[in-house]
Structures are given as structure tokens and as C-alpha cells.
Design a protein around this nucleic acid. Structure first.
Lengths: 344, 344
DNA sequence: CAGATTTCTACAAACGATTGCTATGATTGC
DNA sequence: GCAATCATAGCAATCGTTTGTAGAAATCTG
């Protein structure tokens, strides 16, 4: 019943060897280095199997200083962007015997510091940050300089940290091109927070794409959201429609902002897409079920998670490996929220 | 820079005491038992503060056999029902210095076994299960009988395990009553998987509520979904509309199934809510943004998470405490997917 | 004031693994 | 045939805590 959990000593005793030998026999690397006879290896493994031995990760961690754990910091799990990414991360980590420790920061620097220091004392082997501001000070403050780090969906300004993200500019360009092909010329942008890399990247992508299309982009065609929320989107969109430039299309910084636009348009009696087309970014689940179904820039969330985990594992193995910055291609999913511009 | 992490020995040395004394001085309980002089307590705590000491949880776990970690098993993080629950759990756990270890099972018993045994070797102090079938064998199989367990959103048949959930029957009853008050009499049910407690509880709630309303519920007014997915909902709804009983309202086992109904209705050229009203369950985020906005039974997800964490913490403290079964009240959110029955 | 009792603190042994070093045969070279 | 080399396995220390026990002060008791 309450079988006292079987330890390495038990295995060793059963195999008739010293615990140290048993340890080496069960350890891939030392075995490979030929430090132990293949006969005894077989005997030990047999014993381990018979006893259904599994090593105590706690004891192991204490000695090896590795927890086989990586901390994953996100603003808020409730944001539908993150669950698929997290699943990707966890699935890939599990393959290598690692687990993820989640931490929600709610975009609050204090909370972020708290969570981070908690992760440090829990001795995570690496850190995945989906919360990075463009300039990142928290890390150095907390003296976790030696910890492997990978960013998700965010890039720091100087690209000094490895990261996985989609090409924001390319995605926005696809949106703009799509709108232009529908005949739109008065295209506005609801920009996300500029201290976040996505917010800034998408704004500059918007400007570049507009210029490439030969369209003017004045200051009145851009509004800045305080954060990536529905409410902020509504607020911004209200400004846009109130202004004299009557945009026929809006490129939102993400889907939340786009949904906010829906609401503001409704309030002002404008129809989407008949009067104003709207494009989002992220293609969160259920965006196809919105009314109207949202045209959005999609990128492979789950795959991003996989790649992130891959990267952090690599860096844990070889902390000094070159700093990879990986971009996954975006894709425009055209749905009902964009339409040909109404002939005036 | 690379300050060798400060250990208990350092603190002890600085305070001029033996490490054991330092340990006791820093430990709430032993201190309370008066095992150490209050002077030395002060001195040790001072030293600890000066050195910015934080105990190594790994070493501590090794000795105390407690990991300050609880495993949380869910079918799929991607299901929008779970993120708010998880946040509740994590937030409450964090308050007590615990962390959650997530595990996705995809409703696959094998995967479930795998994840569970992983959690056991990681020495979780407790288990939160959102995946429980009505009869639960996996646990005994894995010989984790002594581990504290709490169920979320699921109840086992004999209520032998503590759990937190909403009152499924009451929620469904609210839905049925609402529909009846709108004049509906031909009300059908898309039932979830019957091996899950929610599936079964909502079905029996449906039957009871219908009888209470004096309405017949024949076998043709119930279809069974294989799982809680949009696709399964579509399939079931197709059957319902194809059948001779032409229901004017459908109570779906959850929101996913309800969305599936939307799709099937659309296919058959039926309008919701003009021709058929639909009610969901869970009120996942964005259900208000669906087309039409979904009427759904809501319960406080985040709060459920809080309560669950509370319960598992209690049980970790006192494993033999009485088995609480907590029900949180549901609430009907009426939106655009339900309407008065069309006069025939 | 001697002895019994109470308070505290130090010692040392765990917890379960890993790992540098040493010891033992066996093997080889000359 | 003896020294040097090599392949294995054992010994013991260690990671950073916690905790049972022993012993030294300090306090109390009669």
C-alpha cells in the first residue's frame, strides 16, 4: 500500500552495487563515458525497472542546481492570445522533462518583480517572457543576469535577447494591402501601447505600408490606446470617427482593440463593414464567430510556443549560444469585417 | 555580481549561532513553541534581512517532503472556461506561497496517467482535478491515495471527494424557465458527454426542469454530444432540426455546443433567435460578441478558482478534514439568442 | 545552597541524489 | 615477471535545510 518510495539505495542494493555506481549506471552521460561496465548497467537498469524506481527530482535538483523548470511570465492568462502559446510551450517542455511555472503580472511592474523573484528562489532554469517592454530594466534590477531568457511575441529594442515572434510589420502590411485592394484610401490605425514592442512595431509597420501604397498618413489618422483592451479600442475609435478625416477602414493593433472599434462604430450608427472596414491582429479564437466575423492577421500561436520552448531549452543547454531571433510568418485571414469601399 | 547565493549557514554565522538555531529562529512554528530565545530570534532575523537571505525551497522540500506545489489537471487550457479558473487558483495559491503545476490531458486517459505520475514524482502536495469522470479509477491505479484532492466543476458520483462547482441543475432550470416564459414548449437539449459529471448533471437538470414546467421530454428531444466541442454541437443540432419534433428552443450543454448549434441552424436556413432560440452554459468570454449574442448560464469562474485553491490548501493542512462540497450559484445572462416563440 | 527543573543552543544525522577521488584487480608492455 | 596502465566500482563529501537529542546554562525549589 503505502510503499515507502523506492530510492536509489534500494536499486543499488538489489543490483548488488554501490549507490554511486547505480547513479552512474542510470545516467546517460556517465554511462556513455564508459565509467561503468555494461553488465552492471544492465543489472542496475533491470533492478530499477523491477522496483519501478524513479529518481527524486528534488534531491537531484539540490545537488545539480537544476530544477528542470522554466518560468513563464505573461500579462494575463485570461487574454485568449496566451493559452495556445502556453500549450505549445508546455508540450515541448514536457518532451524534455521540463515543466513550466506560470506567472501573471497584469502588466504591473511591481507584481512582475514579485513574481520574478519568486521564480528565482524557486530556481527556475530559464525564463520565458511575454511581458517585455521595449527597454527592459527589471531583469538587471533583480540580478538574474545569468539566467537564460527568451522573449515571446515581443522584441527588445536592440535585439540583444533571443525571441520568437511574428513579423508585425509584414502582418500589418498585409492588412493595409488588402484594404487598399478594396479601394480604401482613408485608412486609420488604432495603435497599441508604444512601450510594448508589438504596439510600436505595428505602428511603424502601418506607416511604412501606407507610404509604400502611396498614401498619406497624417497625425489625425492614428490614435494611441493605453493598453490592448476592448475599452481602449472603443475610446480610440470614437476619436477617429469624430474627427474630420472620415476613415473608411481601421487597422487595429490587435483583436481586442478591433472589438472595441466594433462597439464605437455601433454607437455612432456606422455599419461594419458597409461604412467602415476593420482589421484585427492575432486572430484569437472565436474571432470568426464575431459579428461581423473579424478579418485579422493570424500567426501560429501554438507553434510559437513550441519554438519558444525549443529556444529556451537550447539556451539552458548552452547558455552562450548565439542569440537567435525567430520570426514566424503572419497570414491574413479575410472575413466579413472588411469590404469594398462604398462608392461616395 | 555573481554573489554565491546566501545560505542559512551564512545567516547563522553572522548572527553567531548554529545553523540549526537559525533555522528554528526563522521558522514560525518552532519559534512559537518557544524553542528559541526572542533575543536570538531578533538577531537571526536581522542577519537574514541584512544578507537578503531566502531559504532554498529545494533543500527544504527534500527534508520536509513538501513541495509547496499543487498539480492542476485540466483537459485543455485552450478551452476558454479554464483560464479564469486557473487565474483564481494561482492567485490564491500564491498568497500562501504555493504554485500551480499545470497539466493538460486532452481528455485522454493515457495522457492523464502520464501527467499524474509526473506530478507524483515531482512531489506535488495536492491535486486539483478539472478532468474527473464520474467514476474515477485513475487515482487508485496510480496509488496516490494519500494525496489531497479537490475537484473543480465536476463532482464524482458519490461525492466522496471535495469539490467546487456550480449547481448545474439549478442553472439549467433557469434556462428552461426563461424559455418557458418566452412561450416555448418544444425545447430540446444537446447533452454533453454523460461520463462527465457536468454532462450528466445538466441532462438530469434539464429533465427535471421540463417536468417541473409540465412539459413532455421525449427521447427525440435529446441528443448526446461526444464531447464539449463546436463540431459535436453542430452534429447534434443537425439531428434535432432534421427530426419531426421541430424544437423552437435548444438548451445546449455548454457554450461550445451552443456555438455548434449556431452553425447547424445557419446551414439549415434557420434564424436564431427568430426560428430557434439557443441557450448556452458557462458564459465564456466573448459570448456577448457572438452573433447573435449568446444567452448563457454564467457562474463565477475566477471565484471558483479561488475557492478551489482555498479548499486544497485546507486539505493540505489537515488531510482528514471533512469533505466539503461547495456549490456556487449560477446566473442566467439573457442576450440576443433567445426570443419569444414565433406565433405559428 | 544542593539538587531538580526549565530554557535554550549546539551537535549530528538525516533527506536522496551526484561526483571527485581513491582503491582494487585485471591487463598490458618490456 | 615486474612495473605501469586501464577499466570499474566503492568511499565519502556535498547540496541547504530540518529536527531528535544531548548538554550547558539559568532558574527554581525546599
Amino acid at each position: 500500500m503505502n510503499e515507502r518510495s523506492v530510492t536509489l539505495r534500494d536499486v543499488a542494493k538489489r543490483a548488488g552495487v554501490h549507490p554511486a555506481t547505480a547513479s552512474r549506471a542510470l545516467n546517460e552521460e556517465t554511462r556513455a563515458r564508459g565509467l561503468v561496465n555494461s553488465d552492471t548497467v544492465a543489472r542496475v537498469m533491470q533492478a530499477a525497472r523491477e522496483l519501478n524506481y524513479s529518481p527524486d527530482p528534488v534531491a537531484r535538483s539540490l545537488k545539480t542546481r537544476r530544477s528542470h523548470t522554466v518560468g513563464v511570465l505573461i500579462p494575463d492568462l485570461t487574454n485568449p492570445l496566451f493559452p495556445p502559446i502556453i500549450r505549445g510551450i508546455e508540450d515541448r517542455l514536457a518532451q524534455s522533462g521540463y515543466v513550466a511555472l506560470l506567472g501573471n503580472t497584469d502588466n504591473d511592474p511591481d507584481r512582475e518583480k514579485l513574481v520574478l523573484s519568486g521564480m528565482r528562489t524557486r530556481r527556475v532554469d530559464g525564463l520565458v517572457l511575454a511581458t517585455a517592454r521595449r527597454r527592459y530594466s527589471v531583469l538587471s534590477e533583480l540580478n538574474m543576469g545569468d539566467l537564460p531568457i527568451v522573449l515571446v511575441n515581443r522584441v527588445v529594442e536592440d535585439r540583444a535577447l533571443p525571441s520568437v515572434a511574428t513579423d508585425d510589420a509584414a502582418g500589418i502590411a498585409m492588412a493595409v494591402t488588402h484594404l487598399v485592394s478594396l479601394g480604401h484610401t482613408r485608412i486609420a490605425h488604432v495603435a497599441g501601447p508604444q512601450e510594448l514592442s508589438t504596439g510600436a512595431g505595428r505602428l511603424s509597420g502601418f506607416i511604412m505600408a501606407m507610404e509604400a501604397a502611396g498614401l498619406e498618413v497624417g497625425s489625425e489618422s492614428i490614435t494611441y490606446a493605453e493598453n490592448f483592451s476592448v475599452a481602449a479600442g472603443t475610446k480610440c475609435c470614437r476619436e477617429l470617427v469624430a474627427h474630420k478625416l472620415h476613415p473608411t477602414a481601421i487597422v487595429a493593433g490587435n483583436d481586442m482593440l478591433a472589438i472595441g472599434c466594433y462597439q464605437a462604430l455601433e454607437e455612432s450608427g456606422l455599419k461594419c463593414p458597409a461604412d467602415v472596414s476593420v482589421v484585427g491582429f492575432n486572430d484569437i479564437s472565436f474571432s470568426s464567430r464575431l459579428s461581423p466575423p473579424l478579418t485579422s492577421v493570424r500567426f501560429p500561436h501554438y507553434q510559437v510556443g513550441i519554438e519558444v520552448a525549443q529556444l529556451i531549452l537550447e539556451r539552458i543547454q548552452a547558455p552562450t549560444a548565439p542569440t537567435k531571433v525567430l520570426f514566424l510568418p503572419p497570414e491574413l485571414v479575410v472575413r466579413g469585417s472588411t469590404a469594398k469601399v462604398a462608392t461616395p
